[in-house]
Design a protein around this nucleic acid. Structure first.
Lengths: 214, 214
DNA sequence: TTTATTTGACAACACAGCATGTCACTTTAC
DNA sequence: GTAAAGTGACATGCTGTGTTGTCAAATAAA
């Protein structure tokens, strides 16, 4: 029997794994660009490959199909957004309002600066498949955790003593997301301070309100 | 030149307009059923026609394409939902909390009873096309008006004196929608009272909170 | 230099969906 | 009964997707 010898060879000063990872990244970038530009349904694998400067063959080297690419891009962008918000928290002075405002500013700022990211996170992810809907759900839960830490940092713990607090936090995340959607759909005409202050208002109002028993 | 004579003829005891309207309605019902069952992208025109017991030709008689059908179905269902909520308001005793609770109950009850409607309104509508996204935006604005009337019925007018109240109301609508999404994504396991009370909590908290100047 | 690996461009295939068209059959009007 | 409007089943053209394959050029190892 002939031995199948592995001969990993360096190309352009990079190993096989490195080159594969690089191509994968190119496809992720192109995916964000194309999905965010013309929308997921209208995006073809060929057009994404063209945008990445690669051919279909390398697409299937890294991703099972178009949906898998969307999942990876979504994951990467939500992770990035979370990271950005966490950094904003870290930089902000530990004054309750300034703290919350910093996080919200990072959130809305990113969406305004990168319309492709906004379109992807706010619109394209839903209704594609059950798998993607589930990914959306998980991302929302993670943002709820972020919001929760933000609320507790405000020193207003009333809410955390309520039953169904998970639902309430989900609602707050939904409020901010919806404000962002509306902002995007109206062409980002409203000043960013308006959307930040309105979001903050909902947070503070919720945290401050001592709930009557359910 | 031959005169093109219109000869409207009755079939099965119905006029041409009646039959066309009936077919249109069958397609709307089938659209809701199929879209809500397997999702918009996976739904083919053929499968919708099969579910309606009609052929493709009658599809294009009533709708320009699949997207147009989705738009009509969405419109019909949001109108129905609004109507249901308005009736619930009308029936409720004019006590502030009972009033709000009645509207929310009608909302969540409809979604729980009709998973197809829930899937359509909460998931399938976004990210299909710019036109559909715009429709979503308009529907959300209409629900915001509903919520606004609800808030004012609670006799709590603080919020209406705030600048950017449109944004805040949009946020509240987003909160309820997100709570509904989460409820659907977790298989409606949470008791309906939990989602109602949590939504109500956000409303009351927001309305009750006297905002410091923005 | 020689040889094997990697790459890029693109052709080829089966398959599915949308949208339109064809044709025989049914139902009504005259 | 006959002709025309209406209907239903199916065929067709087109596009895009997934997937595989070909083949020459570029690159690196021997």
């Amino acid at each position: 029997m002939t031995e199948t010898k592995l001969k990993p060879r360096r190309y352009r000063g990079a190993s096989g794994d490195q080159r594969r990872a690089e191509r994968c990244q190119q496809l992720l970038d192109a995916g964000l660009f194309v999905f965010g530009d013309i929308g997921y349904p209208a995006s073809s694998v060929r057009s994404i490959c063209a945008a990445a400067g690669l051919t279909e063959r390398y697409f299937y080297e890294s991703f099972a199909n178009k949906e898998a690419l969307l999942a990876e891009v979504y994951q990467a962008q939500t992770d990035y957004l979370k990271e950005t918000m966490l950094q904003a928290f870290a930089k902000a002075e530990r004054n309750s309002e300034a703290f919350a405002r910093a996080g919200l500013h990072a959130f809305f700022d990113t969406l305004q600066d990168k319309p492709a990211v906004a379109r992807l996170l706010l619109f394209e992810i839903l209704g594609v498949s059950d798998t993607l809907d589930q990914l959306y759900y998980e991302a929302m839960e993670e943002f709820a955790v972020l919001i929760r830490s933000l609320a507790s940092s405000l020193g207003l713990a009333d809410i955390s003593e309520r039953p169904d607090q998970d639902i309430i936090y989900a609602g707050l995340v939904g409020a901010v997301i919806q404000i962002a959607r509306r902002w995007a759909l109206t062409g980002y005409t409203a000043p960013i301070d308006s959307v930040i202050n309105s979001s903050l208002f909902l947070f503070v109002a919720t945290a401050n309100y001592a709930a009557p028993t359910a």
